[in-house]
Structures are given as C-alpha cells and as structure tokens.
Design a protein around this nucleic acid. Sequence first.
DNA 1: TGAAATAATTAGTGATCGCTATATAATTCG
DNA 2: CGAATTATATAGCGATCACTAATTATTTCA
Lengths: 175, 175
Amino acid sequence: MTLFHERGYDGVGVAELAKEIGINPPSLYAAFGSKLGLFERAVERYADKDGGFITDVLDRSRNPEEAIRELFLQAADSFAADRRCPGCLVMDGARNSTDPDASALTATLRGKTRGAIAAWLAGQGLHDAGPLADALMIALAGLSAAARDGMPKDNLHAAAEVMSEGIIGRLEPAA
Amino acid sequence: MTLFHERGYDGVGVAELAKEIGINPPSLYAAFGSKLGLFERAVERYADKDGGFITDVLDRSRNPEEAIRELFLQAADSFAADRRCPGCLVMDGARNSTDPDASALTATLRGKTRGAIAAWLAGQGLHDAGPLADALMIALAGLSAAARDGMPKDNLHAAAEVMSEGIIGRLEPAA
DNA sequence: TGAAATAATTAGTGATCGCTATATAATTCG
DNA sequence: CGAATTATATAGCGATCACTAATTATTTCA
C-alpha cells in the first residue's frame, strides 16, 4: 500500500512489491491473483483506514459549516501526514496509469465518496448539493496534488482554510 | 504535445511520439536530444499558448474579484476544451512520473505561475497573498484532476464557480 | 523414518522501454 | 556524371515490465 501510495500504480513493479511484503512474485500471484488484485486490496484498505475520516466527519458533524471545516482540516492533515507517501491514494494512486482497470478502480471509489458527500449535504437541506459535492471533491483533489508536489504541511493547512471558509460562506438552503 | 497531454510523460513512448511527428526515432533524437528534451519543448509551448490565459487575465483585470472569476472560468474552459487531452499539461503531465527530471520541469513552471499570481495579488494590496495564491493553484490543480477524471464541462464550470466565488468572498485588504 | 503434498526459489517467457550503431537513400557540389 | 555529404530508415542494444514454468526446499502425515 505504501509503495503504491508513494509512486503510483505504474511506478512500482511486482518484484519490488513482493520484496516489500517479504515474499517472491509467485507467492504474490498465488495470494492476490495479479498486480491489479493487490492494488485493489491496497486501495480498499486505504479507503477504509486513511480515508475513514470522511465518513467519520459526516457522521459526527451537526451542521454543514462544521463538516466542511473539519473535512478540509483532516484532509490536509492526512495528505501531509507521511512525507514518504503524500496526498491521497484514491485521488492520485492511478493517475496517468496506462492500466485502465487501475484507473477505473480508484474512479469508482471517488464516485462513492462524492455520492456520500452529496447525499449528506442534501440531507442537511442545502441548495445545489451536487455542484457543492463536486467542488469539495475538486478541492480535495487539489489538496492531494499539492501535497504530492511537496507543499509543506503548514501551507497546505492555510490554503485549505481559505478554500473551506470560502465554500462555507457560499452555503445556502434549498429553495 | 497532445500525446504527452493525453497520457502523461511516462504513458507515451518515443516510437509513438516520432510517428505522430512523422519522423523516425533517430531524427527525434537529432532534433530534441532526448525524450525529456521534446517534453520540455512541449510543456513550454503549452505554457505559452494554452496557459497564456493566466497572465492575460492578470494583465487585463482591474480588481481581484474580476481576476479570480475570470481565472476559474477560463481554466475550466481550457481544461475541458479537448476531450482527448483534458486537464492541464503543467499540472498533470508529469504526475506520478518515474523520471524526476520531467517532474522537476513541470514543478518549475507551476512555481513561476504561483509566483506571478502571488505578486499580482500582493500588488492589488491584498492580505495573505501567498496563501491565497496557494489556494488558487490548488483549486486549479483540482480542476485539472477533475477534468482528467472525465468530469463534463458543465459540471466543471459549476464547481469552478462555487470555488471562485467562495474565495472571492474571503478577500480582504492588507493590514 | 520415508513418501506425498506443499511451499518457496530460481530462472526465463515475450513485450516494451529509451536510445543508438549500422545501413540505405537522397541531395549537394566539383 | 560521379564522389562526398547529409538525411533517412532499419534493426537491435541492454534494461525492465507483468507473469509463470520448472526446480528445489520444506513440511505433513503414515
């Protein structure tokens, strides 16, 4: 998972993945079926653990302002937590990959996240929950890209606050 | 340039690049020195032509509100203009590349753009021009990522408007 | 302990990578 | 027209890719 996160799906080979796990390539294929199978397991684990803060924030927040603020704060924290593998594996783990299956895998997870956010916003009685969810996902994608481009944690935090407070200021109830 | 834009630096081979130009690999090396040399030329051309709207907007705008609004609008237009090569070549052309030189090339151009935006904002007498420039760059990176992930032009526009108006609403003069 | 089943390792498959030495064709000049 | 020069194209260099057949080592039970 760390290797995929660090260098992307195409950037790491099966030999190195097996070595990191402590097995040989044939054992990797016996256990996961293919490189893509291992990637699927890694991405799902990442979404469950590292990406769990998203559903947690939505569950715990009692109003959209608090939710969005906390979402951006925790995203900036998460994306800059480990200097060795910055950004989000779901956002950027298969970016520019030559394997369409790997891209489709992460795209599906992004779709689920966007759907959960949009549904929560709509449930809060907000106008334009769809475009709002798109804007949030785009901002998160930007944060992930910036983290991967090496932006320091403090700068990431400051920029995240600008964006979150900006979007919060534009919230309005459904017509 | 189109091939690099479409599939990223690592995603396209020299043989295909040469074929697209209409020459053979040895001629490509005679003309550009290396794959990286051709990428450099392509990225610089892209920054000059397709990315020219950024400096144009800054030059023409008479206040930050107008500038930011126009920046996001034109970015969304540009990133979704060609379905075959969506997003921004400078933002995502070398993302997850295994060649650090290619990544450094695009990183330098992003740094220049961020610098130009920050300087312009500061010249407009705005508070926190640095974090603001970071936020703008991050939003643009998010728009590029969303475009590359296949988001339709209209949705991209709507989300861009949410983000731009949000940031505009948070502008404040320097202390 | 000895045979059967399982696991791990080595080595190698064809394909593609960036890049280039060699060979062929086209052009320029005496 | 023929020789020297330049530009083109073909083919192949070593390296790496995902993946696996064949071999060796280990363990499991009678």
